[in-house]
């Protein structure tokens, strides 16, 4: 069978760039032929990060990587623990600040603290929590909210913290929970969300 994308002779990052542009065209499954281990691992890792199902099959001189995009487009389903409803799996919380709503900052911060505490207590935590702009304070400077987020992580929520934002506020060293992420990964999660909760 002819591969959909033939990356024979191509070195990284080219095979990933081609996989990425194919993925952006639509949700149809496709195959990528690679001839070196680095390309095999990179294409596999990229597709998994983008929420695709990935299969690798050795061929004569290389590997055929088959990529099946998730119906929603981008959520990492595997991040959710077993036994949860499908809706909870693709729920994404997006927090772009360290307060909820506009008004008195003190009230906004208290609401945020309560919200995260309640989320950590909940039986169905979100699949993904994304923290951007001053939202990164919630897992760095603010000990109380960081503790709630940490509990969410332990419950299986994937916590993505905007790296550019951490750098901007000089908070990278202070990260207490979550994984440093970037705009590509975050965009993939937002597009793939079946339910997006933005506060």
């Amino acid at each position: 069978m002819e591969p959909d994308i033939d990356c024979t002779g191509l070195l990284c990052p080219e095979p990933v760039i081609r996989t990425k542009s194919r993925l952006e065209k639509g949700p149809d499954p496709f195959t990528v032929l690679v001839d070196n281990e680095t390309a095999r691992d990179n294409v596999t890792r990229f597709a998994k990060t983008m929420g695709c199902e990935v299969g690798v099959e050795a061929t004569g001189g290389g590997w055929l990587v088959s990529v099946t995009p998730s119906p929603a487009g981008g959520t990492v389903v595997q991040a959710a623990p077993e036994g949860e409803g499908p809706s909870a799996r693709q729920t994404v919380f997006l927090l772009t600040g360290d307060e909820i709503g506009r008004g008195e900052p003190e009230l906004g911060r208290t609401l945020m603290k309560m919200f995260l505490f309640a989320a950590a207590e909940s039986d169905s935590p979100p699949a993904t929590l994304i923290l951007m702009n001053s939202g990164v304070r919630l897992v760095t400077e603010n000990e109380e909210t960081a503790a709630s987020v940490k509990r969410l992580e332990q419950a299986g929520t994937e916590v993505l913290v905007c790296g550019t934002c951490l750098d901007y506020y000089g908070l990278k060293e202070a990260l207490k929970a979550g994984t440093v992420s970037n705009i590509y990964e975050i965009q993939g999660k937002l597009i793939g969300a079946s339910l997006l909760v933005s506060l």
Binding site: C12, P13, V16, T19, T38, D41, N42, V43, T44, R45, F46, A47, T49, G163, T179, V180, S181, N182, Y184, E185
Partner: peptide, 9 residues
Amino acid sequence: LAMLGLGMA
């Protein structure tokens, strides 16, 4: 780590 997750090894 983010770039590694996106297949940039």
